[in-house]
């Protein structure tokens, strides 16, 4: 099993007292599988994704990626796991503003020591970015930026790709095109995909769906 989430709990401290965001979430995902994560705003979807990515510590339960439990890892080990195993795509694109599109695309692969210029060129061509690689993020449209972000996540050949509403900031047509590219890329890489989305239409395009409500799988 590539990803095994078991009894995951997470509580945030707020001015009004502790708020339980995840209350014992469990699910599993194997290589090549894809899963949509849906739910109301505030249901804990993004928090679950962040915990799985090792971006946010959790309170209880286990998150195992390739058998390694994130609960027992320090920050450096979690960062290393992210570099080598996890690809991330966010709603806000979050490219590095000081680097060109080409440098952004290759960034994580180079960090992970898996940079393959030919594969990057292939990804750029597949994502329709070949003529845009010398531009800076501020010179790209939203759809172009998100395609760079997808390329960055895939270029490191991650085993697990985590996407948080990757088309949430795009219009429907552009969003559909980006989604096609994401799914094609994941399939080509043989990676697993866990994607947060509000859209039932998009969720239906993935292999399975988990619905979160008040911190639990409904």
């Amino acid at each position: 099993m590539l990803l095994d989430v078991d009894g995951l709990t997470k509580t945030f401290a707020t001015a009004e007292g502790p708020v339980a965001v995840l209350r014992g979430v469990s699910f599993a995902l194997d290589a090549g599988q894809s899963l949509a994560l849906t739910g109301e705003s505030g249901s804990g979807k993004s928090t679950l994704l962040h915990c799985v990515a090792g971006l946010e510590p959790f309170d209880g339960g286990a998150v195992r990626i390739g058998g390694a439990d994130l609960a027992g890892m320090g920050e450096a080990a979690r960062a290393a796991l992210r570099r080598r195993t996890v690809g991330l795509v966010f709603q806000q694109f979050n490219l590095i503003p000081s680097l060109t599109a080409g440098a952004n695309l290759a960034f994580q692969a180079r960090l992970a020591g898996r940079h393959d210029p030919a594969f990057c060129a292939h990804l750029a061509a597949r994502l329709g970015l070949s003529g845009l690689l010398d531009r800076y993020p501020e010179q790209l449209s939203g759809g172009q930026q998100q395609r760079v972000a997808i390329g960055r996540a895939l270029a490191a050949r991650p085993a697990l790709l985590l996407a948080d509403e990757p088309t949430g900031n795009l219009d429907e047509t552009t969003g559909d095109a980006v989604m096609d590219l994401l799914l094609d890329g994941v399939a080509e890489a043989g990676a697993a995909l866990l994607m947060v989305t509000h859209s039932m239409r998009l969720a239906a395009r993935l292999g399975g769906r988990l619905h979160l409500a008040q911190g639990r799988i409904a």
Binding site: A53, L55, E75, A76, A79, A80, R82, R83, R84, L88, F90, N94, L95, I96, P97, S98, F107, Q108, L111, A112, R152
Partner: peptide, 16 residues
């Protein structure tokens, strides 16, 4: 923050 967060998410620790 917006400049550092993507690099952190890509696998660099806050200490680094």
């Amino acid at each position: 923050l917006p400049q550092l967060a993507p690099v952190w998410a890509a696998g660099l620790t806050r200490g680094r």
